[in-house]
């Protein structure tokens, strides 16, 4: 899950070269969340602006570290979506490749780079939010020190480098001083808030501090999605061949 969290805040970061301090914070944050593999079972609760709630569950498995990782996310509930899966292949120098598998028609489909800004199937995540990006894909700028939920944080602005495509023009990250985890990320498009992501329920799992609850707020739709991580494990043995298109189709 740490990979996902890292992706969520790293993708929109900015820091200019003279603020090495910010980059160091971000490097440290990435290092602390680094793990060879990760798996968990997620419960996804989508709460619409009208308080209509829909719940889904997925299994998440990842191999590799930030920017060079591969992940498969497979829905397990409700029954209508069981088996639908998403393969994400992250790259250090560019946007990820993503494919979706629909078992009912036995078809995989490529999620085009141009479509990454669209919502991830009715949740408040976008496809881009599921990517994991290396810290080097962003420039950072230290802003201030602030307290979020009673926790002291560094407030850092991140902007994607020119070679990196992103729906967000900038992001504001609040990095906790105690464990270098992100407490909150706000993503902007041309100074307009698009999404706010909050991390809570921090627990140490196999030596890695991880938020067990991630809440995404869509500022346009006024809806939110709460992801709860269960059965979280790190460094479980996994094989590369389990993260291919063939594996996705299984």
């Amino acid at each position: 899950m740490n990979r996902l969290i890292a992706a969520l805040f790293l993708l929109c970061s900015l820091a200019s070269a003279q603020y090495d301090f910010s980059l160091q914070i971000m490097d440290e944050s990435e290092n602390r969340s680094r793990a060879g593999t990760q798996q968990y079972e997620g419960t996804l609760e989508v709460i619409s602006a009208g308080n209509k709630v829909s719940i889904k569950r997925w299994e998440y498995r990842r191999i590799g570290s930030n920017g060079a990782s591969k992940a498969i996310l497979r829905f397990t509930a409700p029954a209508e979506v069981k088996g639908v899966a998403l393969l994400i292949v992250n790259h250090t120098d560019r946007s990820s490749d993503q494919w979706m598998w629909t078992p009912a028609i036995q078809r995989d489909r490529r999620i085009a780079a141009q479509d990454r800004s669209t919502r991830f199937f009715g949740t408040d995540f976008s496809f881009e939010d599921l990517e994991e990006r290396d810290v080097d894909q962003f420039d950072y700028k230290f802003q201030d020190e602030e307290t979020i939920g009673g926790l002291a944080c560094w407030k850092i602005e991140s902007k994607p480098r020119q070679s990196v495509s992103s729906q967000y023009t900038s992001s504001m990250l609040w990095i906790r001083k105690d464990n270098y985890l992100a407490a909150q990320i706000e993503n902007f498009s041309k100074d307009k808030l698009v999404r706010r992501i909050r991390y809570s329920d921090i627990q140490n799992v196999s030596g890695t501090w991880t938020p067990r609850t991630v809440e995404v707020y869509d500022a346009n739709r006024k809806s939110r999605t709460v992801l709860k991580l269960e059965k979280l494990e790190y460094n479980v043995p996994m094989k590369d061949e389990d993260f291919t298109l063939e594996a996705l189709r299984r």
Partner: peptide
């Protein structure tokens, strides 16, 4: 279909042919 202006469930829409 309520206050939400969306397909009832986009994932189900795609998952079910």
């Amino acid at each position: 279909s309520g206050a939400d202006d969306d397909i009832d469930d986009p994932l189900v829409f795609l998952a079910q042919p």
